[in-house]
């Protein structure tokens, strides 16, 4: 037998050192920005008293979606409050929302770029495949190495995990806009920007919204996993219960996460359905 191993692990470690050394000033300022973002979401969510928060959420959900979902939302938050995981629930929502915000902020423009340029698409697509197929635990490590344990690292990991559907579905949505529509826009003298803003993006919106929905769900899923690198929130409740074999605690964390997931999923789904209705030919 040949006593030889491809030293990939060594290479990656060495490379990481170099990269993190040179990137550290950028990373630090990026880290600060992300930190501010999470803090902002958290403080907004934790600012009103629980009862006020529930009423407000109920009203907003009522307005954006359906009365039924509003009732579900209020009962769900009541349950979280009653089980004593209010602060954790808010922390999880904050992280999931910041994860979604950052993912969309980066993902949608990337998707637009991919839709406009075949070369860009050919570069972006394998990167997305890579990000999506990589086991999520694996990029917890570089996230920690670049940003240290804590919420920022968790946010970065969340972003990597949740961004691909936003990019993919934005690209798909725009490319799926019928050729005739684009042709009509061009025939009247629209340039690329006008075609994009007036025709392609509005018509791709339902698909992009499906991307947003997935993005939110994946952010939520990742905040649980990211509790291992200091994301806190409901994920931490689950993690602790695992470490102490406390099944009861695990159930509390798990059920709260499920309630959040259902609420966010139905909410985005209903919004995009409402938006779509009435404009199909």
């Amino acid at each position: 037998m040949i006593d030889f191993v491809i030293p990939l692990a060594d290479w990656v470690n060495a490379g990481f050192k170099v990269v993190s050394y040179h990137l550290s000033p950028i990373l630090r300022s990026l880290s600060e920005i992300l930190e501010v973002l999470i803090r902002l979401f958290e403080s907004i969510l934790l600012w009103p008293p629980e009862a006020v928060f529930m009423v407000l959420t109920g009203l907003i959900v009522w307005r954006l979606a359906t009365p039924r979902l509003a009732v579900f939302a209020v009962i769900g938050f009541l349950a979280a409050f009653g089980m004593g995981v209010w602060a954790e629930t808010m922390a999880t929502i904050a992280l999931a929302l910041s994860g979604t915000a950052v993912s969309l902020l980066v993902g949608v423009p990337l998707g637009i770029l991919a839709s406009q340029n075949n070369v860009a698409e050919r570069i972006i697509r394998p990167l997305l495949d890579f990000m999506q197929t990589l086991p999520s635990f694996v990029y917890l490590i570089p996230a920690v190495m670049f940003f240290g344990m804590g919420k920022v690292a968790a946010l970065v990991a969340t972003m990597i995990f949740a961004m691909p559907p936003a990019v993919r579905l934005t690209n798909l949505g725009i490319r799926e806009v019928s050729r005739e529509m684009v042709e009509a826009a061009r025939a009247f003298g629209s340039n690329r920007w006008q075609t994009l803003m007036d025709v392609q993006l509005p018509l791709a919106l339902p698909t992009i919204m499906a991307g947003v929905n997935q993005c939110i769900m994946m952010s939520l899923a990742m905040t649980v996993i990211a509790s291992m690198i200091g994301a806190g929130g409901l994920g931490l409740v689950v993690l602790r219960s695992m470490q102490t074999l406390d099944i009861g605690m695990g159930a509390v964390g798990g059920i709260s996460i499920v309630i959040l997931a259902i609420l966010l999923d139905r909410l985005t789904e209903t919004i995009s359905r409402k938006q779509k209705a009435g404009r199909d030919i």
Binding site: S178, E180, A184, F188, G189, P202, I281
Partner: peptide
């Protein structure tokens, strides 16, 4: 060039399509 062509399309020549191609939104 593209700009002149767009001018032509904006002012001189317009088009009606078989599939109508009017914007549903």
């Amino acid at each position: 060039d593209v700009e002149d062509l767009q001018e032509i399309r904006r002012k001189k020549v317009s088009m009606v399509f078989q599939s109508f191609a009017i914007f549903p939104h």
